[in-house]
Design a protein around this nucleic acid. Sequence first.
RNA 1: GGAGAGAUGGCUGAGCGGUUGAAAGCACCGGUCUUGAAAACCGGCAACGGGGCAACUCGUUCGUGAGUUCGAAUCUCACUCUCUCCGCCA
Length: 419
Amino acid sequence: MHNINYIRENSTEFDNAMKLRGEDSISSKIIEIDKIKRETQTVLQNILSERNKLSKEIGNLKSKNMDANEKINKVEELKLKINSLKELENIKDNELNSILSRLPNIPHNSVPYGKDDSDNKFYREWGTKPKFNFKPKHHYEVGENIGLINFATATKLSGSRFVTLKNQISKLERSISNFMLDKHTEENGYVEYSVPFLVKEETLFGTGQLPKFGDDLFTAGDDLWLIPTAEVPLTNLVRNEILNINQLPIRSTSFTPCFRSEAGAAGKDTRGMLRQHQFTKVELVSIVEPHQSENELERMLTCAESILKDLNIHYRVMTLCTGDMGFSANKTYDIEVWLPGEQKYREISSCSSCGDFQARRMNTKYKNGDKNIFVHTLNGSGLAVGRTLIAILENYQMEDGNVEIPEVLVKYYNNKTLL
RNA sequence: GGAGAGAUGGCUGAGCGGUUGAAAGCACCGGUCUUGAAAACCGGCAACGGGGCAACUCGUUCGUGAGUUCGAAUCUCACUCUCUCCGCCA
Protein backbone atom coordinates (compact mmCIF):
# COMPACT_ATOMS: atom_id res chain seq x y z
CA MET A 1 0.00 0.00 0.00
CA HIS A 2 1.37 3.34 -0.96
CA ASN A 3 1.74 6.51 1.03
CA ILE A 4 -0.73 8.96 -0.46
CA ASN A 5 1.44 11.88 0.64
CA TYR A 6 4.33 10.47 -1.34
CA ILE A 7 2.22 10.17 -4.45
CA ARG A 8 0.94 13.71 -4.01
CA GLU A 9 4.42 15.15 -3.69
CA ASN A 10 6.29 12.89 -6.14
CA SER A 11 3.73 12.09 -8.78
CA THR A 12 6.21 11.87 -11.67
CA GLU A 13 8.57 9.56 -9.81
CA PHE A 14 5.62 7.48 -8.76
CA ASP A 15 4.30 7.09 -12.29
CA ASN A 16 7.78 6.21 -13.51
CA ALA A 17 8.12 3.55 -10.82
CA MET A 18 4.76 2.05 -11.73
CA LYS A 19 5.73 2.05 -15.38
CA LEU A 20 8.75 -0.09 -14.53
CA ARG A 21 6.31 -2.59 -13.11
CA GLY A 22 4.01 -2.51 -16.10
CA GLU A 23 1.32 -0.24 -14.69
CA ASP A 24 -0.28 2.75 -16.41
CA SER A 25 0.21 6.29 -15.18
CA ILE A 26 -2.36 6.75 -12.53
CA SER A 27 -1.12 9.40 -10.14
CA SER A 28 -3.24 12.16 -11.65
CA LYS A 29 -6.36 10.09 -11.09
CA ILE A 30 -5.32 9.26 -7.55
CA ILE A 31 -4.53 12.87 -6.76
CA GLU A 32 -7.86 14.02 -8.13
CA ILE A 33 -9.85 11.58 -6.03
CA ASP A 34 -7.76 12.43 -3.00
CA LYS A 35 -8.37 16.13 -3.55
CA ILE A 36 -12.13 15.73 -3.69
CA LYS A 37 -12.01 13.52 -0.65
CA ARG A 38 -10.04 16.04 1.38
CA GLU A 39 -12.16 18.97 0.31
CA THR A 40 -15.26 17.06 1.25
CA GLN A 41 -13.69 16.17 4.53
CA THR A 42 -12.87 19.78 5.36
CA VAL A 43 -16.42 20.96 4.70
CA LEU A 44 -17.85 18.01 6.58
CA GLN A 45 -15.67 18.57 9.60
CA ASN A 46 -16.67 22.21 9.86
CA ILE A 47 -20.31 21.24 9.89
CA LEU A 48 -19.69 18.50 12.43
CA SER A 49 -17.92 20.99 14.59
CA GLU A 50 -20.90 23.32 14.40
CA ARG A 51 -23.26 20.48 15.26
CA ASN A 52 -21.19 19.51 18.26
CA LYS A 53 -21.25 23.05 19.57
CA LEU A 54 -24.99 23.35 19.14
CA SER A 55 -25.56 20.02 20.84
CA LYS A 56 -23.61 21.16 23.85
CA GLU A 57 -25.60 24.35 24.00
CA ILE A 58 -28.80 22.36 23.80
CA GLY A 59 -27.60 20.27 26.68
CA ASN A 60 -26.94 23.37 28.74
CA LEU A 61 -30.31 24.91 27.97
CA LYS A 62 -32.14 21.71 28.78
CA SER A 63 -30.32 21.26 32.05
CA LYS A 64 -31.64 24.71 33.00
CA ASN A 65 -35.09 23.77 31.78
CA MET A 66 -34.96 26.42 29.06
CA ASP A 67 -36.39 26.23 25.56
CA ALA A 68 -33.95 24.78 22.98
CA ASN A 69 -36.22 24.26 20.02
CA GLU A 70 -34.56 26.84 17.82
CA LYS A 71 -31.18 25.16 18.12
CA ILE A 72 -32.65 21.72 17.72
CA ASN A 73 -34.19 22.74 14.43
CA LYS A 74 -30.87 24.12 13.28
CA VAL A 75 -29.10 20.84 13.97
CA GLU A 76 -31.85 18.99 12.12
CA GLU A 77 -30.95 21.00 9.04
CA LEU A 78 -27.27 20.28 9.42
CA LYS A 79 -27.94 16.56 9.58
CA LEU A 80 -29.06 16.41 5.98
CA LYS A 81 -25.85 18.01 4.79
CA ILE A 82 -23.77 15.80 7.03
CA ASN A 83 -25.27 12.64 5.61
CA SER A 84 -24.69 13.54 1.97
CA LEU A 85 -21.13 14.71 2.65
CA LYS A 86 -20.35 11.55 4.58
CA GLU A 87 -21.61 9.51 1.71
CA LEU A 88 -19.43 11.35 -0.77
CA GLU A 89 -16.39 11.06 1.45
CA ASN A 90 -17.02 7.35 1.78
CA ILE A 91 -17.31 6.84 -1.96
CA LYS A 92 -14.07 8.70 -2.63
CA ASP A 93 -12.29 6.87 0.14
CA ASN A 94 -13.34 3.52 -1.27
CA GLU A 95 -12.30 4.51 -4.78
CA LEU A 96 -8.91 5.55 -3.49
CA ASN A 97 -8.37 2.39 -1.48
CA SER A 98 -9.45 0.20 -4.30
CA ILE A 99 -6.83 1.74 -6.57
CA LEU A 100 -4.05 1.93 -4.00
CA SER A 101 -4.48 -1.62 -2.75
CA ARG A 102 -3.92 -3.00 -6.25
CA LEU A 103 -0.71 -1.16 -7.13
CA PRO A 104 2.60 -3.01 -6.70
CA ASN A 105 5.50 -1.81 -4.60
CA ILE A 106 8.05 0.67 -5.95
CA PRO A 107 11.31 -1.04 -6.97
CA HIS A 108 14.44 -0.17 -5.03
CA ASN A 109 16.88 1.87 -7.12
CA SER A 110 19.38 -1.00 -7.13
CA VAL A 111 16.92 -3.25 -8.97
CA PRO A 112 17.76 -3.79 -12.65
CA TYR A 113 15.20 -2.83 -15.24
CA GLY A 114 13.71 -5.69 -17.24
CA LYS A 115 10.63 -7.34 -18.68
CA ASP A 116 10.80 -10.88 -17.42
CA ASP A 117 13.10 -13.47 -15.86
CA SER A 118 15.49 -13.33 -18.82
CA ASP A 119 16.46 -9.85 -17.62
CA ASN A 120 17.38 -10.93 -14.10
CA LYS A 121 20.92 -10.10 -13.16
CA PHE A 122 23.59 -12.48 -11.92
CA TYR A 123 24.62 -11.57 -8.38
CA ARG A 124 26.93 -14.36 -7.23
CA GLU A 125 27.33 -18.11 -7.21
CA TRP A 126 28.73 -20.79 -4.98
CA GLY A 127 30.32 -24.16 -5.83
CA THR A 128 30.52 -25.77 -9.22
CA LYS A 129 28.40 -28.08 -11.29
CA PRO A 130 29.01 -31.67 -10.20
CA LYS A 131 30.50 -34.10 -12.73
CA PHE A 132 28.92 -37.48 -13.35
CA ASN A 133 30.45 -40.38 -15.21
CA PHE A 134 26.95 -41.39 -16.26
CA LYS A 135 23.97 -39.45 -17.53
CA PRO A 136 22.24 -37.99 -14.46
CA LYS A 137 18.53 -38.63 -14.26
CA HIS A 138 15.63 -36.35 -13.48
CA HIS A 139 14.52 -36.43 -9.86
CA TYR A 140 11.25 -38.12 -10.79
CA GLU A 141 13.11 -40.86 -12.62
CA VAL A 142 15.32 -41.42 -9.61
CA GLY A 143 12.34 -41.56 -7.30
CA GLU A 144 10.00 -43.53 -9.50
CA ASN A 145 12.64 -46.12 -10.34
CA ILE A 146 12.92 -47.07 -6.70
CA GLY A 147 9.16 -46.77 -6.18
CA LEU A 148 9.32 -43.96 -3.62
CA ILE A 149 7.80 -41.14 -5.66
CA ASN A 150 4.37 -41.79 -7.08
CA PHE A 151 2.32 -39.37 -9.14
CA ALA A 152 -0.40 -41.80 -10.17
CA THR A 153 -1.61 -42.45 -6.65
CA ALA A 154 -1.70 -38.74 -5.90
CA THR A 155 -3.70 -38.12 -9.05
CA LYS A 156 -6.16 -40.73 -7.89
CA LEU A 157 -6.60 -38.87 -4.62
CA SER A 158 -6.44 -35.26 -5.71
CA GLY A 159 -5.86 -34.81 -9.44
CA SER A 160 -2.91 -33.27 -11.19
CA ARG A 161 -0.04 -31.43 -9.54
CA PHE A 162 0.06 -33.60 -6.46
CA VAL A 163 2.50 -36.28 -5.42
CA THR A 164 2.86 -39.04 -2.89
CA LEU A 165 6.22 -39.77 -1.36
CA LYS A 166 6.98 -42.95 0.44
CA ASN A 167 9.23 -44.53 3.00
CA GLN A 168 12.85 -43.28 2.72
CA ILE A 169 11.96 -40.24 0.62
CA SER A 170 9.27 -39.19 3.09
CA LYS A 171 11.82 -39.59 5.82
CA LEU A 172 14.33 -37.59 3.82
CA GLU A 173 11.84 -34.75 3.41
CA ARG A 174 11.37 -34.75 7.17
CA SER A 175 15.12 -34.79 7.74
CA ILE A 176 15.58 -31.81 5.43
CA SER A 177 13.00 -29.70 7.22
CA ASN A 178 14.43 -30.55 10.63
CA PHE A 179 17.92 -29.65 9.49
CA MET A 180 16.74 -26.30 8.11
CA LEU A 181 14.79 -25.39 11.22
CA ASP A 182 17.69 -26.30 13.51
CA LYS A 183 20.08 -24.27 11.43
CA HIS A 184 17.89 -21.19 11.41
CA THR A 185 16.92 -21.34 15.07
CA GLU A 186 20.28 -22.37 16.51
CA GLU A 187 22.72 -20.55 14.24
CA ASN A 188 20.86 -17.89 12.28
CA GLY A 189 18.89 -16.26 15.06
CA TYR A 190 15.32 -17.00 14.00
CA VAL A 191 12.55 -18.01 16.38
CA GLU A 192 10.44 -20.97 15.36
CA TYR A 193 6.67 -20.70 15.19
CA SER A 194 3.85 -23.11 14.49
CA VAL A 195 1.16 -21.14 12.73
CA PRO A 196 -2.33 -21.65 11.26
CA PHE A 197 -2.42 -22.88 7.66
CA LEU A 198 -5.85 -21.32 7.18
CA VAL A 199 -6.14 -17.56 7.37
CA LYS A 200 -8.71 -14.82 6.99
CA GLU A 201 -9.03 -12.38 4.15
CA GLU A 202 -7.58 -9.47 6.13
CA THR A 203 -4.47 -11.50 6.76
CA LEU A 204 -3.94 -12.07 3.05
CA PHE A 205 -4.60 -8.41 2.40
CA GLY A 206 -1.86 -7.54 4.86
CA THR A 207 0.87 -9.30 2.91
CA GLY A 208 -0.56 -8.33 -0.49
CA GLN A 209 -2.04 -11.56 -1.87
CA LEU A 210 -5.51 -10.04 -1.77
CA PRO A 211 -7.45 -8.35 -3.24
CA LYS A 212 -5.60 -8.84 -6.51
CA PHE A 213 -4.39 -12.42 -6.56
CA GLY A 214 -7.23 -14.50 -5.20
CA ASP A 215 -7.05 -16.71 -8.29
CA ASP A 216 -3.68 -18.03 -7.16
CA LEU A 217 -5.08 -19.24 -3.86
CA PHE A 218 -7.27 -22.03 -2.57
CA THR A 219 -10.27 -21.24 -0.39
CA ALA A 220 -11.51 -23.43 2.40
CA GLY A 221 -14.98 -21.92 2.66
CA ASP A 222 -16.11 -20.06 5.77
CA ASP A 223 -14.01 -17.09 4.67
CA LEU A 224 -10.79 -18.98 5.25
CA TRP A 225 -7.99 -19.41 2.74
CA LEU A 226 -5.12 -21.88 2.57
CA ILE A 227 -1.78 -20.16 2.96
CA PRO A 228 0.40 -19.98 -0.18
CA THR A 229 3.44 -19.45 2.05
CA ALA A 230 4.21 -19.08 5.76
CA GLU A 231 5.18 -15.50 4.96
CA VAL A 232 1.47 -14.76 5.35
CA PRO A 233 0.91 -15.92 8.94
CA LEU A 234 4.42 -15.07 10.15
CA THR A 235 4.36 -11.49 8.87
CA ASN A 236 0.81 -10.92 10.04
CA LEU A 237 1.71 -11.92 13.59
CA VAL A 238 2.36 -8.22 14.11
CA ARG A 239 -0.66 -6.93 12.22
CA ASN A 240 -2.29 -3.94 13.90
CA GLU A 241 0.45 -3.61 16.49
CA ILE A 242 2.54 -0.75 17.69
CA LEU A 243 5.76 -2.48 18.65
CA ASN A 244 8.29 -1.36 21.17
CA ILE A 245 11.60 -0.43 19.53
CA ASN A 246 13.48 -2.95 21.65
CA GLN A 247 11.35 -5.78 20.24
CA LEU A 248 13.06 -5.26 16.88
CA PRO A 249 14.40 -6.90 14.88
CA ILE A 250 11.92 -9.78 14.94
CA ARG A 251 13.20 -12.83 13.09
CA SER A 252 10.79 -15.73 12.76
CA THR A 253 10.70 -19.03 10.94
CA SER A 254 8.16 -21.74 10.36
CA PHE A 255 7.85 -25.03 8.53
CA THR A 256 4.49 -25.25 6.77
CA PRO A 257 2.74 -26.71 3.80
CA CYS A 258 2.00 -24.17 1.08
CA PHE A 259 -0.98 -24.26 -1.25
CA ARG A 260 -1.05 -22.61 -4.64
CA SER A 261 -3.55 -22.97 -7.43
CA GLU A 262 -0.89 -22.27 -10.07
CA ALA A 263 -3.66 -20.66 -12.09
CA GLY A 264 -1.35 -19.03 -14.62
CA ALA A 265 0.96 -22.00 -15.01
CA ALA A 266 -1.11 -24.36 -17.16
CA GLY A 267 1.19 -26.69 -19.05
CA LYS A 268 4.29 -25.46 -17.23
CA ASP A 269 6.53 -27.91 -15.38
CA THR A 270 3.93 -30.62 -15.57
CA ARG A 271 6.45 -33.40 -15.19
CA GLY A 272 7.83 -34.14 -11.75
CA MET A 273 7.25 -32.44 -8.46
CA LEU A 274 8.74 -29.07 -9.24
CA ARG A 275 5.43 -27.22 -9.42
CA GLN A 276 2.74 -28.66 -7.18
CA HIS A 277 -0.50 -27.42 -5.68
CA GLN A 278 0.93 -28.38 -2.31
CA PHE A 279 4.50 -28.31 -1.09
CA THR A 280 6.41 -27.76 2.12
CA LYS A 281 8.68 -24.88 2.89
CA VAL A 282 10.69 -23.39 5.72
CA GLU A 283 10.09 -19.67 5.66
CA LEU A 284 12.07 -16.80 7.13
CA VAL A 285 10.49 -13.48 8.06
CA SER A 286 12.11 -10.34 9.47
CA ILE A 287 10.46 -7.28 10.93
CA VAL A 288 12.97 -4.43 11.25
CA GLU A 289 13.46 -0.69 11.56
CA PRO A 290 13.57 1.06 8.19
CA HIS A 291 17.29 1.79 8.25
CA GLN A 292 18.05 -1.89 8.85
CA SER A 293 16.14 -3.40 5.97
CA GLU A 294 18.83 -3.24 3.30
CA ASN A 295 21.33 -5.06 5.50
CA GLU A 296 18.66 -7.44 6.65
CA LEU A 297 17.96 -8.55 3.09
CA GLU A 298 21.64 -9.42 2.61
CA ARG A 299 21.64 -11.20 5.95
CA MET A 300 18.53 -13.17 5.11
CA LEU A 301 19.98 -14.18 1.76
CA THR A 302 23.11 -15.40 3.53
CA CYS A 303 20.99 -17.46 5.93
CA ALA A 304 19.15 -19.10 3.05
CA GLU A 305 22.40 -19.75 1.21
CA SER A 306 23.91 -21.33 4.32
CA ILE A 307 21.56 -24.27 3.86
CA LEU A 308 22.76 -25.04 0.35
CA LYS A 309 26.37 -24.56 1.37
CA ASP A 310 25.92 -27.06 4.18
CA LEU A 311 24.27 -29.44 1.73
CA ASN A 312 27.14 -28.78 -0.65
CA ILE A 313 24.95 -28.07 -3.64
CA HIS A 314 25.95 -25.62 -6.36
CA TYR A 315 23.73 -22.56 -6.80
CA ARG A 316 23.67 -19.04 -8.13
CA VAL A 317 21.93 -15.92 -6.85
CA MET A 318 20.03 -13.65 -9.20
CA THR A 319 18.72 -10.13 -8.59
CA LEU A 320 15.24 -10.05 -10.00
CA CYS A 321 14.51 -7.34 -12.53
CA THR A 322 11.62 -4.90 -12.19
CA GLY A 323 9.36 -7.03 -14.38
CA ASP A 324 9.89 -10.30 -12.52
CA MET A 325 9.43 -9.15 -8.93
CA GLY A 326 6.45 -10.03 -6.80
CA PHE A 327 3.72 -7.53 -5.99
CA SER A 328 4.85 -6.56 -2.48
CA ALA A 329 8.61 -6.61 -3.00
CA ASN A 330 10.88 -3.66 -3.61
CA LYS A 331 13.88 -5.91 -4.14
CA THR A 332 14.22 -9.66 -4.53
CA TYR A 333 17.06 -12.16 -4.73
CA ASP A 334 16.33 -15.60 -6.09
CA ILE A 335 18.58 -18.49 -5.20
CA GLU A 336 18.67 -20.92 -8.09
CA VAL A 337 19.95 -24.38 -7.50
CA TRP A 338 21.66 -26.48 -10.13
CA LEU A 339 19.66 -29.53 -11.22
CA PRO A 340 21.93 -31.95 -13.13
CA GLY A 341 19.06 -34.09 -14.37
CA GLU A 342 17.33 -31.15 -15.91
CA GLN A 343 20.59 -29.36 -16.74
CA LYS A 344 19.06 -26.12 -15.47
CA TYR A 345 19.15 -23.70 -12.58
CA ARG A 346 15.83 -23.63 -10.76
CA GLU A 347 14.52 -21.30 -8.10
CA ILE A 348 14.75 -22.76 -4.62
CA SER A 349 14.43 -19.58 -2.59
CA SER A 350 13.20 -16.07 -3.03
CA CYS A 351 14.27 -13.41 -0.54
CA SER A 352 12.41 -10.13 -0.68
CA SER A 353 12.45 -6.82 1.04
CA CYS A 354 9.07 -5.11 1.11
CA GLY A 355 9.96 -1.80 2.74
CA ASP A 356 6.91 -0.42 4.53
CA PHE A 357 4.56 -1.68 1.81
CA GLN A 358 3.15 -4.56 3.86
CA ALA A 359 3.42 -2.63 7.12
CA ARG A 360 1.03 -0.02 5.72
CA ARG A 361 -1.42 -2.71 4.68
CA MET A 362 -1.15 -4.41 8.07
CA ASN A 363 -0.90 -1.19 10.07
CA THR A 364 2.23 -2.27 11.90
CA LYS A 365 4.38 0.39 13.50
CA TYR A 366 6.98 0.73 16.18
CA LYS A 367 7.44 3.46 18.71
CA ASN A 368 10.58 5.49 18.22
CA GLY A 369 10.62 8.21 20.86
CA ASP A 370 7.25 9.91 20.50
CA LYS A 371 6.85 8.90 16.86
CA ASN A 372 5.08 5.84 15.50
CA ILE A 373 6.85 4.61 12.39
CA PHE A 374 5.92 1.86 9.96
CA VAL A 375 8.23 -1.14 10.24
CA HIS A 376 9.91 -2.78 7.28
CA THR A 377 9.16 -6.40 6.48
CA LEU A 378 11.20 -9.05 4.69
CA ASN A 379 10.57 -12.62 3.79
CA GLY A 380 12.49 -15.43 2.20
CA SER A 381 12.40 -19.15 1.71
CA GLY A 382 14.91 -20.92 3.80
CA LEU A 383 14.34 -23.11 1.68
CA ALA A 384 11.57 -24.74 -0.30
CA VAL A 385 11.77 -28.26 1.10
CA GLY A 386 10.23 -30.05 -1.88
CA ARG A 387 12.67 -28.46 -4.26
CA THR A 388 15.56 -29.14 -1.91
CA LEU A 389 14.54 -32.77 -2.02
CA ILE A 390 14.64 -32.61 -5.80
CA ALA A 391 18.07 -30.99 -5.71
CA ILE A 392 19.41 -33.70 -3.43
CA LEU A 393 18.00 -36.52 -5.54
CA GLU A 394 19.56 -35.07 -8.68
CA ASN A 395 22.89 -33.92 -7.25
CA TYR A 396 23.53 -36.91 -5.00
CA GLN A 397 22.29 -39.68 -7.29
CA MET A 398 24.58 -42.59 -8.01
CA GLU A 399 24.95 -44.74 -11.07
CA ASP A 400 23.29 -47.74 -9.41
CA GLY A 401 20.11 -45.71 -8.82
CA ASN A 402 20.66 -45.14 -5.13
CA VAL A 403 21.16 -41.73 -3.58
CA GLU A 404 23.79 -40.61 -1.14
CA ILE A 405 22.64 -38.69 1.94
CA PRO A 406 24.34 -35.29 2.29
CA GLU A 407 26.67 -35.35 5.26
CA VAL A 408 24.78 -32.75 7.33
CA LEU A 409 21.57 -34.74 6.96
CA VAL A 410 22.99 -38.06 8.10
CA LYS A 411 22.31 -37.42 11.76
CA TYR A 412 18.73 -36.47 10.89
CA TYR A 413 18.40 -39.65 8.83
CA ASN A 414 19.06 -42.25 11.49
CA ASN A 415 22.78 -42.07 10.71
CA LYS A 416 22.32 -43.77 7.40
CA THR A 417 24.46 -42.54 4.50
CA LEU A 418 22.42 -43.97 1.64
CA LEU A 419 18.77 -43.69 0.74
C1' G B 1 -23.94 -28.39 18.59
C1' G B 2 -26.70 -26.46 23.61
C1' A B 3 -26.57 -22.67 27.82
C1' G B 4 -24.45 -18.35 29.83
C1' A B 5 -20.86 -14.06 30.28
C1' G B 6 -18.13 -10.50 27.95
C1' A B 7 -15.34 -7.07 24.14
C1' U B 8 -13.08 0.34 26.83
C1' G B 9 -6.05 3.39 25.83
C1' G B 10 0.69 -0.73 25.82
C1' C B 11 -1.71 -3.90 30.03
C1' U B 12 -5.45 -4.33 34.26
C1' G B 13 -9.92 -1.88 34.97
C1' A B 14 -14.15 2.29 36.24
C1' G B 15 -17.74 4.49 33.45
C1' C B 16 -26.37 8.19 35.59
C1' G B 17 -27.48 9.67 27.12
C1' G B 18 -24.76 15.93 27.65
C1' U B 19 -16.93 19.60 30.09
C1' U B 20 -15.73 11.30 29.29
C1' G B 21 -10.82 10.95 24.84
C1' A B 22 -12.52 8.51 28.73
C1' A B 23 -11.45 7.61 36.52
C1' A B 24 -7.85 4.55 39.00
C1' G B 25 -3.69 1.30 38.99
C1' C B 26 0.49 -0.88 36.35
C1' A B 27 4.05 -0.13 32.55
C1' C B 28 6.81 3.70 30.11
C1' C B 29 9.36 8.76 29.78
C1' G B 30 11.27 13.31 32.38
C1' G B 31 12.50 15.57 37.13
C1' U B 32 13.50 16.06 42.71
C1' C B 33 16.00 13.30 46.44
C1' U B 34 20.59 9.71 46.48
C1' U B 35 27.79 8.60 45.95
C1' G B 36 24.88 5.24 42.50
C1' A B 37 20.46 2.38 42.34
C1' A B 38 15.82 1.26 44.61
C1' A B 39 11.88 3.52 47.28
C1' A B 40 9.20 8.04 47.85
C1' C B 41 7.41 12.48 45.71
C1' C B 42 6.30 15.84 41.31
C1' G B 43 5.20 16.07 36.11
C1' G B 44 4.21 13.81 31.25
C1' C B 45 2.06 9.79 28.44
C1' A B 46 -3.82 7.03 22.77
C1' A B 47 -4.27 6.46 17.58
C1' C B 48 -5.64 8.17 12.90
C1' G B 49 -7.04 12.10 9.73
C1' G B 50 -8.32 17.48 7.92
C1' G B 51 -6.65 22.75 8.06
C1' G B 52 -2.21 25.87 9.19
C1' C B 53 4.85 28.02 7.79
C1' A B 54 3.99 27.52 12.86
C1' A B 55 1.96 28.16 17.80
C1' C B 56 -2.27 25.67 17.23
C1' U B 57 -6.97 24.05 15.81
C1' C B 58 -10.89 20.86 14.11
C1' G B 59 -12.80 15.94 13.21
C1' U B 60 -13.05 10.59 13.92
C1' U B 61 -12.25 6.40 16.99
C1' C B 62 -14.49 2.67 23.59
C1' G B 63 -14.94 -5.25 18.83
C1' U B 64 -17.39 -4.32 13.47
C1' G B 65 -21.62 -2.38 10.79
C1' A B 66 -26.37 -0.17 10.82
C1' G B 67 -30.14 2.50 13.73
C1' U B 68 -32.69 5.73 17.69
C1' U B 69 -31.44 10.90 19.50
C1' C B 70 -30.40 17.85 19.06
C1' G B 71 -26.38 14.75 21.39
C1' A B 72 -24.27 7.61 22.16
C1' A B 73 -18.63 4.20 25.31
C1' U B 74 -23.61 4.45 27.62
C1' C B 75 -30.15 2.73 24.25
C1' U B 76 -31.83 -0.86 19.79
C1' C B 77 -30.61 -4.48 15.94
C1' A B 78 -27.23 -7.53 13.11
C1' C B 79 -22.45 -9.53 12.71
C1' U B 80 -17.51 -10.95 14.50
C1' C B 81 -14.48 -12.54 18.27
C1' U B 82 -13.19 -14.16 23.34
C1' C B 83 -14.25 -16.73 27.91
C1' U B 84 -17.07 -20.35 31.20
C1' C B 85 -20.19 -24.75 31.60
C1' C B 86 -22.44 -29.14 29.01
C1' G B 87 -22.13 -32.52 24.78
C1' C B 88 -18.86 -34.47 20.93
C1' C B 89 -13.92 -35.24 19.34
C1' A B 90 -7.98 -35.37 17.29
